[in-house]
Design a protein around this nucleic acid. Sequence first.
DNA 1: GCCGCGACCGAACGATCGTGCTAATCCCCG
DNA 2: CGGGGATTAGCACGATCGTTCGGTCGCGGC
Lengths: 197, 197
Amino acid sequence: MRKGEVTRQAILDHAMRSASTKGLDGLSIGVLATDLGMSKSGLFAHFSSKEALKVAVIERAAVLFYEAVMLPSLRAERGLPRIRAIVSHWIGWAERMGLPGGCFFMAAAVELDDQPGAPRDALVRSQADWRDALSKAVEIAVSSGDFEAHVDPSQFAHDLWAIVLGYYYASRLMLDERARERALHAFDALVERASKS
Amino acid sequence: MRKGEVTRQAILDHAMRSASTKGLDGLSIGVLATDLGMSKSGLFAHFSSKEALKVAVIERAAVLFYEAVMLPSLRAERGLPRIRAIVSHWIGWAERMGLPGGCFFMAAAVELDDQPGAPRDALVRSQADWRDALSKAVEIAVSSGDFEAHVDPSQFAHDLWAIVLGYYYASRLMLDERARERALHAFDALVERASKS
DNA sequence: GCCGCGACCGAACGATCGTGCTAATCCCCG
DNA sequence: CGGGGATTAGCACGATCGTTCGGTCGCGGC
């Protein structure tokens, strides 16, 4: 890997951590540069606009998310066990990755949902990929017999997503120590409702 | 009402709309002033710092939220009917109030969850009030017999919150037209699980 | 009728922002 | 080991930010 690529990765990793707290728009090229011990223009040269930097950060975050949540869950058995693995990796993945500002995607989603442009498109693309992967996992659980046949994979994925959003909200803003416990409780209820009885 | 008070309200109402899209930090005193046809310093004089403006906007939003969601629901019968009323007013309250950027509190929560200070404190206070009001409504539903005795009001309130968060996420970022339908489906499941069978 | 005060304005400040341009330096390949 | 593209630095620009200050206008009470 060339030197420039190494630097670029270092920039993106740091920018991702920074954006998790200040937001993508709160990223400052100058601050980023001094944090990494380089010049503003030197950093800027790697991307040719701030918008391109945002896009690169989002795509980098998507890769890291996939590696931290989806990849390890693929080692679990197909069906319900894999879904349990996904949830257990999903909840708290931000803390585990050392993101000081909580879930990167939740912050980006709220910030970009009403701002058309390349960053929003990149975010939607990555989130759609994840949504499809989730639905697929649920579909497998249905066809393997873990879940009843009437379970709608996309609805299940939506409900799962809401549970995770609720976890981050309660955990980070309201400082609810029982947030994780509450989220898992909701997940159990969701699973019980979908499972054959 | 004094002239200054009228102006102040106009500022806060406009700032709230603006903050729903650009975020609280994205508020610009200069832009706000020109939008309202007044000078930067004239607007600034009403609050003596941007932080104070943020706090005032949050408190104003809390009042408007209460009036738009809680007050009309109090006319519904105690117990489950009132909870149904709350949910139907809660989902989509931002659109109904003409907030162009979706739920003000969801945006503020993600933005302020890791930024200590007066704005965060004001937000947490308002959200805790709402959480308590929600729990109380559920408690009434339990004691009135609409819900089973084992239902935990705070868990129910948490689950409700997650459903609304999921709705805004799917609706605004992913542009899922079935977001409302999905949220109501999840709500029905939540109610069914809590109701006497 | 004059005084006082609330309400607002205009101009300016230092700081920081993203973004060019040019030159120096480094690293990799032949 | 030497040449050349890749990488980084230095400097400056226009714009915008929150904030300060001094001043003006109008209205209500003694």
